[in-house]
Design a protein around this nucleic acid. Structure first.
Lengths: 212, 212
DNA sequence: GAAGTTCTGGAACGACATGTCAAGAATGCT
DNA sequence: AGCATTCTTGACATGTCGTTCCAGAACTTC
């Protein structure tokens, strides 16, 4: 009973997410948000609360989506674990350029902007831990399958892969083109501690077009 | 003739830089800046112009300093080139934690915040190009000395190292502790295409404490 | 010390920020 | 249709933003 909302909460959430990802927390006004979501400020406040709550909800939804997306990329049988790690790197390289507006990751944006918000901080930490967990499992799967050196430290490799992911995003936003970024991903993949046997099965190992 | 300025332009510039690095462009008000620099708004506007000019000057000064700092780390004879690359990674890992306030790189902040400012954009691109150039020279030096595979693509490796640098910064700001970050740097170093001979001379190659 | 010049701190202003509210519009139920 | 309920819209209060301006302080030169 009562008047039904004139907006689709999911769509509005996504539009708001894109606005925050485009202009950050401090750089986004509630007017911008309302315009992006296609509703008035009053409806906004009624539906989501104030700006900080709104940001937190948006960030949490983004984290949910991102965690499961990466988990989907990284989960699977041991035989394909190494390929999944390559896919992780390639997808990381394409992340920004695949977006129609070249938007970056909201988690990176939150972290770099240095927002002081306990709940958001906690949520982001959780997201990073989970993604790192998915990566670690995948690395261990590749180790079990004999593709990665068994003595290598899976969590450390995962953290490096996380860092490469974040770093490629920054480079992309700084203007590095998609092709160069994919070569960076290839380099990163080549830097993994592949076993000798698996390395010999990979395409050109470390090399590339020699001419710069 | 006339009243002399009551502030040291260099010190004020640095204080303002730290303020921008702490709270970003959109998150920093001119009042904050004036307070951080220890001068009144009138003096600020007289000395630096409006907020956008002020930011540009601060960013340019930061780029100058950063470029030369990295160049100093990376320049030297071929014999120590590989060690200098390691130093680059270790310093990257320590960057945020070495700062008393845990501040990140201003260039990263600018890029991630997505500020639309032509001159600043150009300046940042130049800085990244220059640092990449220093890295590429160092990689090539290491190749000349037989520490890195001669077929490896120096610019691609440099771009990967840049990405790792940016990525470790984000991880540090996200809460990854200093020790873990240094292990990530070690992993990244181990991922370089070392020649077999040089690799055998390095400490434990890819390994680490097996127990997590 | 008087004149001329430059720097300083705070007042002032219009624009815009956030958050609230009330009157009206659109629905379900009886 | 009428009522209760919920959503929407635009106006409003209050504060902060960037920027300008000016009266006075501090210095150099004569």
């Amino acid at each position: 009973m009562g008047r039904p909302p004139g907006f689709d909460r999911t769509k509005v959430t996504q539009a708001i997410e894109r606005q925050f990802r485009r202009t950050g927390y401090a750089g986004t006004s509630v007017d911008d948000i309302a315009k992006a979501g296609g509703l008035g400020r009053g409806s906004l406040y009624a539906a989501f609360g104030d700006k900080s709550k709104l940001y937190l909800q948006t960030l949490a939804a983004y984290c949910d989506r991102t965690e499961t997306a990466w988990a989907a990329v990284l989960e699977g049988p041991d035989e394909t674990a190494l390929e999944r790690l390559r896919a992780y790197l390639v997808k990381s390289a394409r992340f920004v350029h695949d977006d129609p507006d070249g938007l970056g990751c909201m988690v990176t944006g939150f972290v770099v902007e240095g927002i002081n918000h306990d709940q958001a901080n906690e949520r982001v930490r959780l997201a990073l831990t989970r993604i790192e967990g998915s990566l670690t499992e995948c690395v261990q799967a590749a180790q079990r399958h004999g593709d990665l050196e068994p003595e290598a430290d899976a969590p450390e490799i995962s953290q490096l892969l996380m860092a490469v992911n974040r770093g490629m995003e920054v480079m992309a936003k700084a203007g590095l083109d998609a092709a160069a970024l994919e070569r960076v991903a290839d380099q990163a993949f080549a830097g993994l501690p592949l076993t000798a046997q698996t390395r010999s099965q990979q395409a050109p190992p470390v090399v590339a077009d020699a001419a710069s």
